[in-house]
Structures are given as structure tokens and as C-alpha cells.
Design a binder for these strands. Structure first.
Lengths: 197, 197
DNA sequence: AATAGAAACGGACTGCAGTCCGTTTGGACC
DNA sequence: GGTCCAAACGGACTGCAGTCCGTTTCTATT
């Protein structure tokens, strides 16, 4: 979890000063450690700043807000997932027939979401719909629907299939509604088949 | 917006002391006025307490949290909507064929949600899935799916149809994705027809 | 190596949610 | 009307997110 920056696509704007880069690293590591040692709730901006040995203002300049910091942590930890969708082994990765890929995608997304549940909640608005992985997921589903020769507003259908995989919905189903993960998975599979039919 | 309590179902627990009831009224009115005169953001617990002429602690004892207060305001203002689904004129109310009712329900829900968008956001977790209206909506959709002779896990399908009508999704579509309300409506209608088919 | 100015830094400060606890009050029972 | 106590009250207090601005540090340029 570190080293070689994965997608340094940003080459145009001012470029980042070396101390700024060092501090960002330190802050992300500090936040990550706080989560490991305690919990997401214990990640206060003051605590992160202190642990990283920088001032509080610095944390806000780097990440805008607590939600922004959480989103940054999420992006980092979900990059591996994204990679396995793009180029991992089938059925999640390329190679399997589109319907199988789509179902595998849903299951995998569900698990990843639940794994990072606390972080996603803490990222609030940024965590639910704004960070990069969400856009990627929509694009991928849209693509698979195209492969399946589905007609209609694929963008909308992709959103509609993704919506029930979001944290508030999943937690409601697994919590209050007392459903098992298997039931939820089966429900989603059924939904997909109806949409694709 | 006041008087005759709508559903005083609660008759078992301790019952409420008269000063407590009076204060709840005053607090809801104060919050409501603050929203009208300024905005949802201006509804701070201190401001509400001061305007209602009570101490801050009282606000929290009544509503638990700021989100709880927002949810209370929501429940109150969405009660009329709920009534029009149960016993209003068709196609939203009873009388129209089930598919028409279902589509009308979605459109109506979409509009109501957008109308109360700021409040729903402010109610956070409580606003998205916990307050009474959400449970009612799920039940109603489930019922209509039954009428339409849909087979399968109707509870799941209801959730799946409701999920894309939630605020974060709608705002993403109308905002970033630059879709019109009509497109979104059409997308949802298509989704419903596929599920029902 | 010296210089300048843009960018980054740090930490005191503000505003708000939520808690705590000593005080007051409604109303049930005598 | 008087007594009692559970429930309600109020506001000082705590902790955290987010802002502001005077100070320090990079780095491009000469």
C-alpha cells in the first residue's frame, strides 16, 4: 500500500510541491493507522494532524474536509478492486460471457461495499456518489448492458442496477429486514435478469 | 399545518406531560418558521431553542438530534402525500389499474422527494430510510407488484424500484448527468415495465 | 549562492452538535 | 390544599469540523 503512484494523470495544473506531497502521504498513512488501531470514528482531523506531525490547517488544505479525507482513503483502497474488474480473472474480469460478468460484478461490488461500509458512511456525500470508483462502476455496467444487447436508456438502467447496491439500502436489508446476504444477492440477480430479458 | 393530531396511535407508554407536548409543538413551529424565513441550514439547535423560548437540552430530549428534528418535520409534511396515495383520486389513489398506479406513484414520489430535498438531506440517515413514509412506500409498491401478478421476491423488487428514487441518485442525475426530469421519469417507467413484464 | 514570491504551514479561533447535572414543575395521591 | 417524585427543564460545558491569517519553506531565476 504505497510507492509508485497509480494514475498520475494530473500533469497539467501547477504540479505539487515536494513538502506538500510528503505531507499527503504522511496524512493518509496516519489516518489509515488510526483506523486500524481504533475505528473510523476515532479519525478526527486533530488526531490525524497530530499523528502525522503537521498542523490542522494542512489536513484541510490537502483534503478539503473530513469527508474528503475519507474519500481519499476509499479511492486508494478500492483501486485494487477496480483493477480486478478491468483485468482480473473471469467471471469478474474479461473473458466470461457478459451476463455472468454482470452478476459477478454485482456480487463483488456488494462485498466490497460492505467491507468498506464504515468508511463509505464517513465519506458521506463524497463517499456515495462522487468518488472515482462510483463513476467507473456506472460505466462498466453500461458497457456490459450494451454487450448484452439491451436496448433503451443504458445510462439510466446502469444507475438503477447500482442503486440497490449502495450502503443505506444494503444495511437496511441486512439489518432491519433481517435478510441474509444470499437472499439479497439472489434478489439482485433476479432484478438483473428482468432488466436484461 | 397544526391542530388535530393525525395518528395518536401511541396510547401505551407513559403518556406525555402537558408541558412537554406544548414544547414539542413550539419547537416544530419554530423550526418550520426558521426554514421559511431563511433556509434549512439556518436551523441550528440553539436557534430553534431560542425561538421556541426553551433551553437547548429540551430540544435534544424531544428529538434526540438535529437529524431527528428534521425527520419529525418531514414526517409531518409528508403525511398529506401518504394520504393522497391511500385515498386520493386515481391514478395515484385507488381506482386506476395497478400499472398506472405504480407509475403515478413513482412520478409523485420523485416530485415530493425533490420538493423536500434539503430537508431529507438534513435528516441524514433518518431521512433516507428510517422515517415512517419510507416504510409505507415500500409496502405500497410491494402491494401493487402483487396486484400486477409479479412473481418472485416482491420485497426486494420494491426496494430495487424505490432505490433510484432516492435523493442522492436523483440529484446526481439531474445535476452532474444533466438529465431532465422527463428523462429520469421515462427511465424509471422503463425500469418498472421491465420488472413487471 | 542570493532573492523573490507563490505555495504551504500551523495553530488560535469560531460555531455548532451533543452531554451533564443541579433545579423546577406537572400531576397523582392523600 | 399539601406532599412527593418522576419527568422535564435550562444552560454551562466538551469535542470536533472548518476558517483565518501571520509565518515559514520551497523552487525558479539570475
Amino acid at each position: 500500500m504505497d510507492a509508485t503512484r497509480l494514475l498520475p494523470l494530473a500533469g497539467e495544473p501547477p504540479a505539487e510541491r515536494s513538502d506538500a506531497a510528503r505531507n499527503r502521504e504522511a496524512l493518509l498513512r496516519a489516518a489509515s493507522e488510526l483506523i486500524d488501531h481504533c475505528s473510523v470514528e476515532s479519525v478526527t482531523m486533530d488526531a490525524v494532524a497530530q499523528r502525522a506531525g503537521v498542523g490542522k490547517g494542512t489536513v484541510f488544505r490537502r483534503f478539503e474536509s473530513r469527508e474528503g479525507l475519507m474519500a481519499a482513503l476509499l479511492d486508494h483502497s478500492e483501486t485494487t478492486w477496480q483493477a480486478s474488474v478491468i483485468s482480473g480473472p473471469p467471471p469478474l474480469g474479461p473473458g466470461a460471457p457478459p451476463l455472468e460478468r454482470l452478476l459477478a460484478f454485482g456480487h463483488s461490488r456488494m462485498e466490497t461495499t460492505l467491507t468498506h461500509a464504515a468508511l463509505i458512511r464517513a465519506a458521506g456525500h463524497a463517499g456515495t456518489r462522487a468518488y472515482a470508483v462510483a463513476a467507473f462502476a456506472a460505466m462498466h455496467v453500461r458497457y456490459l448492458l450494451g454487450q448484452l444487447d439491451v436496448h433503451g436508456d443504458l445510462g439510466y438502467l446502469a444507475t438503477a442496477l447500482l442503486a440497490p447496491l449502495e450502503i443505506p439500502v444494503l444495511e437496511q436489508q441486512l439489518g432491519q429486514e433481517r435478510r441474509s446476504l444470499d437472499e439479497v444477492r439472489a434478489g439482485w440477480d433476479d432484478l438483473v435478469r428482468r432488466v436484461v430479458a
